[in-house]
C-alpha cells in the first residue's frame, strides 16, 4: 500500500511500430499529437491519480459530481456482474440479483458509514461526514466496476461447473474487488490528508490513517457480506 508517484511532466517521444515498407513518416503528424486529450472520464475519476479525486472531494460541487458518477458506476458494475453471473437462473433470477446486489451495496455503505465515522473520532482523525460519503462511494464504485469487468469470468465458470468453479469464482471476484477497493480507499484518504495538510504526514498520523482505511474496509465488508447473506441475490427467488 504505497501512494502512486505523481506523473512526470516531460512527454516521451513515442516510437511508432510501422511497416518498414510504409511511406516515410515525415509528412504524418507525430504520434504524440494523436494521444487523447486529458478529459475527465468515469474511469479516470475512479482509477486515476488519487490526488485528483482528493481535490474533487474537497470542492463542494465537484464532490456532488463524484457522488453522481460513483452511484452510476455502482449500479452499472453490480448489475452487470449480477446479470452475467446468474444467467443460469433465468431472466427473473438475473433481474432480481441485479436489483438486490445494487441495493445491498448502497445499504451496506449506509450501515457502515456511521461506525467508520466513529472510528475516525476514536483515533482522533475526524473526516467530515460529507467527505466520507464521497470517499466511500468512489471506493465502492471502483470496486463495482472491477466486479463488472470480472463478470465474464464468473459467467463462464458457472457454465463450466456450477457446483465448484462458479461459486469459487463468485467469491474470488468479490475478494479481488473488495481488496482493490480497500487499497483505493487508503490512497484517496492519504491524498485527501496530504491535500488538506499541504505537507507530508508524520508517522503517527499515517498509522492512524491506515487504521481508518482498514476499519472502513472491515466495516464495509461486514455489512456487505451480511447483506449478501440476508438477501441471497445469487440463489434465485
Amino acid at each position: 500500500m504505497s501512494s502512486t508517484p505523481l506523473p512526470t511532466a516531460a512527454p516521451r517521444l513515442l516510437i511508432e511500430p510501422a511497416s518498414p515498407f510504409a511511406e516515410a513518416e515525415l509528412e504524418l503528424p507525430r504520434l504524440e499529437s494523436l494521444l487523447p486529450p486529458e478529459r475527465p472520464s468515469l474511469l479516470g475519476d475512479l482509477y486515476g491519480a488519487p490526488g485528483t479525486l482528493a481535490g474533487r472531494l474537497l470542492d463542494r460541487e465537484a464532490r456532488a459530481e463524484v457522488v453522481r458518477i460513483s452511484i452510476l458506476a455502482i449500479v452499472i458494475g453490480t448489475a452487470l456482474f449480477a446479470v452475467l453471473a446468474t444467467s443460469h437462473l433465468g431472466a427473473w433470477g438475473s433481474a432480481r440479483a441485479a436489483l438486490l446486489l445494487a441495493a445491498n451495496t448502497f445499504l451496506g455503505l449506509m450501515g457502515a458509514l456511521g461506525p467508520i465515522y466513529a472510528t475516525g473520532l476514536l483515533v482522533a482523525a475526524r473526516l467530515p461526514l460529507s467527505r466520507w460519503v464521497g470517499v466511500l462511494l468512489s471506493g465502492a464504485a471502483s470496486s463495482a466496476l472491477l466486479l463488472g469487468a470480472l463478470a465474464p469470468i464468473a459467467h463462464l465458470a458457472f457454465r463450466i461447473d456450477p457446483l465448484w468453479a462458479g461459486p469459487l469464482s463468485l467469491a474470488g471476484a468479490f475478494l479481488v474487488a473488495g481488496l482493490s477497493g480497500g487499497v483505493r480507499l487508503y490512497r484517496v484518504l492519504h491524498a485527501l490528508a496530504a491535500a488538506v495538510r499541504g505537507e507530508a504526514l508524520r508517522d503517527g498520523e499515517l498509522f492512524r490513517l491506515k487504521i481508518q482505511a482498514r476499519m472502513a474496509l472491515v466495516f464495509t465488508a461486514l455489512t456487505g457480506a451480511l447483506g449478501l447473506w440476508a438477501f441471497d441475490p445469487f440463489l434465485g427467488g
Binding site: L43, G48, S142, L146, A149, L150, P152
Partner: peptide
C-alpha cells in the same frame, strides 16, 4: 478484455 481495461486504468 474487460479486466484489462479496468486493470490498466487502475
Amino acid at each position: 478484455g474487460p479486466s484489462a481495461v479496468i486493470g490498466a486504468a487502475q
